[in-house]
Design a protein around this nucleic acid. Structure first.
Lengths: 179, 179
DNA sequence: AGCCCCTAGTTGAATTGTAAACCATCGATG
DNA sequence: CATCGATGGTTTACAATTCAACTAGGGGCT
């Protein structure tokens, strides 16, 4: 440690926690990805489709989407292109703002996510939720919510169908965890 | 929700927690990465060097390293090649096992990490540790430790210099959180 | 209108990551 | 000691991601 010592170093304990988080989160991500790879999709793609499936009309502006799933606009453009090639999603230009583009979930996209959701949710349960006691999981959730708010104050899920009319069915959002 | 209902779906509450984790962890990763990008390094590269810096003699077998930082062997090979090109690391073939390769931190690599550590630790503190109460952070750490153990039972940090002789200095491990 | 700067989104090249095939060695076993 | 499956690591080809332009439309101001 020499004289580099400074109040900013982590204590041994903090370090242990931090590493647990770092490694654990990687393992978790791997796990969730492999649950999806039978479908030829990655978690990040799943997240995108899933957000779309929850939005009213299954449509969302590119930038809202990017924001919601914490990906760069560029990345969303590329990802959307891939999904479009599979016919799961369609681009529509935005009436109110001619710069804008809306991404729309196609019927076959909706079908696809309904097929995948099962496996995805199971992996989230198996790898995370059921590995913890409800209290532990809640604590994890709260802590991460705080981190999220800290790093991106006021970050909201885009107004979603899940609010009131989730059970009214109209737009079938993939209800679960989706992403 | 229709009839897809099944015991495996997440409850609304679970879903909220899960999303907080998912988005929060992405924001966090972005944050930590941007703290490093003045040095032209990514978090994953930092993790590698940091593990090395803690290992006795600053050397570690490729596969141990890969395991420790939860990256594929292939990825570690590539990353190591990049770091080698910068002169931070050197490959040495292993005496006891002729298939093996040890990665050794060079003096300039050690210098580099000492330079970066400060900024890195600060980002971990600012973005995560200090954003939570000690209790919240501990709870997060415990939960993630459990997840890690669940997904990779018996996973250990490679026997590291940090054990007893950390303060003895001999090998200067970057003490902090490193990664 | 004309100007300016900001936001939305795309593009394409350069980096980085993944997956599968591959070579060499290990080490148990017959 | 020859064989054979498993392990350690690299390579190659390809897929995904980033990064820095770039196009185009908003929208305030004069």
């Amino acid at each position: 440690m020499t004289e580099l010592e400074s109040p900013t170093w982590l204590t041994a304990q903090e370090q242990t926690f931090w590493r647990a988080y770092l490694r654990g989160s990687r393992l978790l991500e791997n796990e969730l990805n492999s649950a999806l790879d039978g479908f030829g999709v990655q978690l990040t793609e799943y997240e995108l489709i899933s957000m779309l499936s929850e939005a009213p009309g299954g449509r969302l502006r590119m930038s809202l989407l990017a924001d919601a799933i914490v990906q760069s606009r560029s990345r969303v453009t590329h990802t959307a292109a891939r999904l479009e090639a599979r016919g799961w999603v369609r681009r529509e230009s935005c009436l109110e703002d001619k710069r804008g583009v809306e991404l729309v979930l196609t019927e076959s996209g909706r079908q696809a996510i309904e097929d995948m959701a099962w496996a995805h949710v199971k992996s989230v349960r198996d790898a995370l939720v059921d590995a913890l006691t409800p209290e532990e999981f809640a604590a994890l959730g709260h802590a991460m919510e705080k981190v999220r708010e800290h790093l991106h104050p006021g970050h909201q899920e885009p107004a979603s169908a899940q609010q009131a009319d989730c059970d009214a069915d109209g737009d079938r959002a993939v209800p679960d965890c989706a992403s």
